[in-house]
Nucleic acid binder design. Structure first.
Length: 639
DNA sequence: AGCCTTTGACCAGCG
DNA sequence: TCGCTGGTCAAAGGC
């Protein structure tokens, strides 16, 4: 925690709107151990309307695989994101990578003097702010000291937290802490260093290596290159238009202000984008989760991750709303009474304990995905607000299908939107690279780049379930009883169901197959199942594994065709399709689309020319934990 | 029926 | 070696 730093970078953002400016700065310190990074940030202005979607900062060495990711949220005052190594299996704490966010709401930092007309957020401190200049030129030792200080503060009572005035980072009221983990900045650019919670914390790093980003947004958070990327002229929060992090406020005013707020940077016409507006409508039923007040006036694009599943499942539908109410009385933001699943993954609580030094009991969660060792620790205050979140490990799987998150209207809106996007993306998909490795070049005055990356599942999260890689189709089948929910009298299940089409079928060639998974499988039945015109066998008694996902829209289907290739790949690899005898049958010619996962990366790696993708070698990204590496590369895509 | 939470007990690391 | 502590297990019960 207190090691010497080699890099110290101050990132600041001054967002000006018609009503308010948003000083924002980060202090990035990269430890000499190359595995530890501190991001120290504090807000200087009350109220703190600025969202900081905050991916972890990559360091040169990749202990990311086993890194943990902690987001500590001091009660109504502070947020700390910490990545740390696991005690035993993982590298020693000295190797740990740490990312912290400190939010303070009472500071009257000189950041208040941030230029209202400045919309740039240079990695380097804007010259107009002496304080930031000073911070920018702060020595590495100072950053290290700050990091050490934060390490100490981590265990301090929020009330005891000294409020730094050096940097500005604010978690907006009503913003879920995991919104940081779902960083739009991160997601918007696949070059950004993914968050552990996005399941690709290290994968991008492994697969793409250090990637110099051309995107100013990405530059800030992508990786170590951020320290070299000082050419960025504009720091722009780039809310993923399709993320489940829906804008907190969806009204037109907000949109307009957001547009205005973008000012000269305007790299992301997020709010003004028609598609985005549609997505805004997605959350129309969840506006109660949006933070009112200065989130609207802020002009900052403040996505709020909403999750309606658990409330409906557990009959605590009001908790989220209640908890999302930011502290009107105080000057600082409150934190949402978040649930473990708010980050999009499914978690199972396996323990709870009151740890020493913590005011609140700590809950232990495990990712429910098979073979996923990711754990999540929650510390929750008595009123349900999370005070600390600690992630351990990284997901080696995509997020489960989040269809339950959306209301009927939301789903329809998303489908509609996606249909539009599909039309506009068809051409782009084909030429911009199969793996979503588009540069995400900012296109001012245009619809947010809905490149294949942006259209990835996580982009829309719940709304984009057709695009999801259904490795957990069973677990997260939207039609399963647990997924059924009734929101406003509308059975979401019934709404979601149509998106099961079209289907992708994996077939085996023999009645008894010895698959590469080492098990011997015998066909024991055949049946025409509801919704599937095909019996579980064909002429040759193939065993079909329905991989179908999709939506009704023809356009969407077309769009999904791209993804289903991926789906079939993934699912095939993760189910029984690993066998060389499996054949992924697709109803229509498919332009291979290697969907990019939510983290904006090609989770399953580059595959070269899609037209040559009959045999797909899928390099396991996580050699240590990827569940089916042995199955890779044996899936055939049918004609 | 399956999944989840709860909760006391157990285990292992550390000083 | 012992006690403390954090983390995990697993039975029981609920949804």
């Amino acid at each position: 925690m207190t090691r010497k730093t080699q890099h110290n970078t101050q990132i600041q953002c001054n967002k000006s709107t018609t009503s308010q400016s948003f000083p924002f700065s980060l202090s990035l310190s990269n430890s000499d151990k190359a595995s530890q990074t501190h991001i120290l940030s504090q807000t200087a202005l009350p109220p703190p309307p600025l969202v900081l979607p905050f991916p972890p900062i990559s360091t040169s060495t990749p202990p990311f695989l086993h890194s943990s990711f902690s987001l500590k949220i001091p009660h109504r005052r502070r947020t700390t994101i910490t990545t740390q190594s696991k005690k035993k299996k993982y590298p020693k704490p000295k190797k740990k990578m740490e990312l912290r966010l400190l939010t303070a709401t009472t500071s009257t930092s000189t950041s208040t003097s941030s230029n209202n007309t400045s919309s740039s957020a240079d990695v380097a401190a804007p010259p107009e702010d002496p304080t930031r200049n000073k911070e920018t030129t702060a020595s590495a030792s100072a950053a290290a000291a700050a990091a050490a200080a934060n390490a100490k503060y981590r265990r301090m009572s929020p009330a005891k937290l000294p409020i730094s005035r050096s940097t500005c980072l604010t978690i907006p009221p009503g913003l879920s802490p995991t919104s940081f983990l779902e960083s739009p900045v991160l997601l918007s650019n696949m070059k950004a260093e993914p968050s552990p919670t996005t399941g690709s914390f290290m994968k991008t790093h492994m697969m793409h290596g250090p990637i110099g980003s051309t995107n100013p947004v990405t530059t800030v958070f992508s990786n170590t290159n951020i320290f070299n990327e000082r050419n960025s002229s504009c720091f722009e929060f780039k809310p993923h238009a399709s993320s489940n992090m829906v804008p907190a406020d969806l009204n037109q005013q907000r949109s307009e202000q957001s547009v205005q707020a973008q000012g000269q940077c305007q790299p992301q016409a997020f709010a003004s984008s028609p598609s985005v507006k549609k997505e805004m409508a997605v959350s129309s039923n969840e506006l109660s989760l949006a933070s009112p007040g200065h989130m609207v006036t802020s002009g900052a694009i403040v996505p709020v991750e909403v999750d309606t599943d658990e409330p409906n499942q557990r009959g605590t539908s009001n908790t989220g709303v209640q908890a999302s109410q930011f502290d009107h009385k105080g000057s600082g933001p409150s934190v949402i009474a978040e649930r473990p699943s708010d980050d999009g993954y499914n978690w199972r609580k396996y323990g709870q304990k009151l740890v020493k030094g913590s005011e609140f009991p700590r809950s232990y969660y495990k990712c429910t995905h098979p073979n996923c060792e990711v754990k999540k620790l929650f510390e929750r205050s008595h009123d349900g607000q999370i005070t600390e979140i600690i992630y351990k490990g990284t997901h080696d799987h995509p997020k489960p299908q989040p269809s339950r998150r959306y209301t009927a209207g939301a789903i329809m809106a998303v489908q509609e939107e996606r249909s539009d996007k599909a039309l506009s993306l068809n051409g782009r998909d084909e030429r911009s690279g199969m793996f979503g490795q588009t540069s995400h070049t900012v296109e001012p005055n245009s619809t947010p780049d809905r490149s294949p990356v942006a259209v990835n599942d996580d982009s829309l999260d719940g709304g984009s379930m057709p695009n999801r890689i259904h490795d957990e189709a069973d677990d997260d089948d939207p039609f399963s009883k647990r997924r059924k929910m009734d929101i406003g009298g509308v059975d979401v299940t019934s709404v979601v169901k149509p998106i099961r089409e079209p289907r992708v079928v994996v077939q085996t060639l023999s009645e008894v197959d010895i698959l590469d998974d080492g098990y011997r499988w015998r066909k024991y039945g055949q049946k025409v199942v509801r919704g599937n015109p095909n019996p579980r066998s064909e002429e040759n008694d193939n065993v079909s594994l329905d991989l179908g996902v999709g939506i009704n829209s023809a356009v969407e289907n077309r769009s999904n065709e791209h993804r289903q290739t991926h789906h079939s790949d993934i699912r095939g690899s993760q189910t029984h399709a690993s066998s060389s005898h499996y054949n992924v049958v697709q109803a229509t010619p498919v332009m291979t689309y290697f969907g990019v996962l939510n983290t904006g990366m090609s989770q399953y790696g580059s595959r070269g020319n899609p037209s040559e993708s009959l045999n797909i070698g899928i390099p396991p990204l996580n050699h240590s934990s990827y569940p089916f590496p042995q199955n890779m590369g044996k899936i055939l895509t049918g004609p």
